[in-house]
Nucleic acid binder design. Sequence first.
DNA 1: AGGTTCGAGTTTTTT
DNA 2: ACTCGAACCT
Length: 754
Amino acid sequence: MSGADSLLASELLCDLNDPQAEAVTHANGPLLVLAGPGSGKTRVITRRVGHLIRVVGAAPWNVLAITFTNKAAGEMKSRIANLISERQARAITVSTFHSLCARLLRIYADRLGLPVGYSIYDTADQQRVIKRSLEELEINAKNFPPAGVLASISNAKNELIDAKAYTTNVSDFYGRTVARVYTKYTEILERNRAMDFDDLLLNTVQLLRQHPAVLSELQDRYRYVLIDEYQDTNHAQFLIASALAARHKNLCATGDPDQSIYGWRGANIGNILEFESHYPGAKVVRLEQNYRSTQRILGVADAMIQNNRARKHKTLWTDNLEGEPVRVLTCRDEQHESRCISKSLQRLHDDKQIPWGSMAVFYRINSLSRVIEDELRGAGVPHQIARGTAFYDRKEIKDAVAYLRAIVNPVDEVNLLRIINTPTRGISERSVKAIQAHSLAHQTAVDELIRNPLLVSSLNNRAQNSIARFGKSLDQWQRRLEESGLTLRGFIESVLRESSLEEMCRNDKSDPDQERLANLGELVSSAQQFEQEYVFEIQLGDEDHTPSLNELLLAMLERISLVSDVDAVDPDQGAVTLMTLHAAKGLEFDAVAIIGVEDGLLPHQRAREDEHELEEERRLCFVGITRAMRYLILSHARYRLVFGQSMPTIPSRFLKELPENLIEFNKPDSIDAHGGEVRNDGRGERALAGKLAGEFPPGSIVRHPDFGLGRVLHVAPMGAHTRARITFNTAGTKTLILQYARLAKVEEFTEDGF
DNA sequence: AGGTTCGAGTTTTTT
DNA sequence: ACTCGAACCT
């Protein structure tokens, strides 16, 4: 070690605690870092990479770091760049498993006999293929819901069970049917030269197994492998990691079994629990000091997670301040809940100077985002929803992307059929069916028939002409992709123009603000941005290589296929972030609110029965709680709309597991009668009940969200509640509790003519 | 051909 | 309550 490097080594270690430093300096051999929440895990990983390169002398391209999302990959790269040079950092491979696999499969496509331009199918594409399979097999989709069948197939794939093995292994009727669908599904994917997310991993496993030369090449390139969130790796990912690290044994896994929340999609918690038996002699480092949260928040999290029985004990502790109590809010309904959360966040912003960008609202299921979003929008609180795929889910963007995919991979019917008559060009549903039927009967690819519609005799002349014209356009775009010196942006613009997609959006009368057109514009500019970044990155690795238009388009489509929800979160936006608990993994915020902490929601309905699933729900809650640095609010509503109907709820059993001395129920400085928090001292509630009774005297006209207009017959405070008997115009006479009824007063002689 | 209405099913979580 | 697909209308 030279003098300069030893200086650097101490610099890399100076602000680390002992176990952190141990993990950073352990150079060779397997290493497991069991990192509690907020224990400086990311810091350890980045410093470790810095140490490997600056002190151990590893070349940047010898380092492979796997993260859970693309966004985490980007952040890790820039944090590493602060320790070494920007240039060196760019040469490190930092990526998700799926992105890495997609890239490897493209690089080694020829050896696997795979097309370079294969499509990546997302869940929606997969469902379509399942439906298609059921159709072709003449199986009733009612008895075999596509989503369920797909889940069975995906689970099998995660265990590396292919269609053939699956078929021989099942005996019951459902399994046998799934086996048939699985076989057909695989066949359709192959026919379309497409892979689903599972295939990216599986085919990579195959690549490494069947091509020792490739494996050997990769093992020597990636001498140091680091994998984050190891508790959430599945079997295929485990195999890929161990194959890559088999020669040099420099596998560093970091993670926390208490934060394993993806069991439902095949993640195997055993990978991290049994690391030491997979890698005998592995060094194990435990990071238990928390630098993120207040004592109270950490205490609440720790107390709750202790209720998990299938768990290794861990001692979480912190030197941080005691902090504010964790607040548990009991609300009337989801509207009330949203209002309370919104007010609380505003108060934290105004009184405690917490920036909007450092606050978050988490929920178990996406549908809960709507109410809170409406409320924040109404209150003028800046916010963003973490839905990475939202942009690409728009119809016009899906269409545009389908064009690009169809150009790259013309064999892919799913894309081709999506755009064949979008915008409408005189190719009817019947004509499309005829083509499909002909394709099936004569074993001819759909794209061939599109280029040569005369082959399909059942088509009339007009249809044949329209189809031929469409085929010519496709040909033209494909040729342009190969030869022209266009930029990616220019190419996409030309396709949008010539396909008339742009024109269709411009003439769309249902969209007066031309939002769709603007979205297409955004796709074009994102392509331009992508091109710049990609060229920059490539040329740092290899100065002579200028990527072709084709390569650029492939890379961009791959990126689009693999965007994740959190990828859309921009921390500099200065906005409150709304996201699911799953998406919250790995993030931190000054203030966190978790809404809908109710039985059936968290833990989710479908997980209440099974002990293991219940523990996963608890871990999910644990992940949410431990994202909070200073303020934490857990809220639940007494009534919640389910399928448009107000249903009574039960507070989450997890709430009972929180130590009472660390929490505060319904902080008493309530807001106001209608916007405020429910007071829990009986006197306050009785006062409110009396007040409400005064607001709706007998004879007054009210409006109910479900029952419409009505007249109050009788009203009386009863304990904490106010009961009112009301005759509705259409719904008859009902007795309602005013606290929950969401009644609005209607002045008489309004334009309702009442 | 293309748009519109009506009914059913819908809510886990995601790369 | 909302979205998606299928029959139905213009």
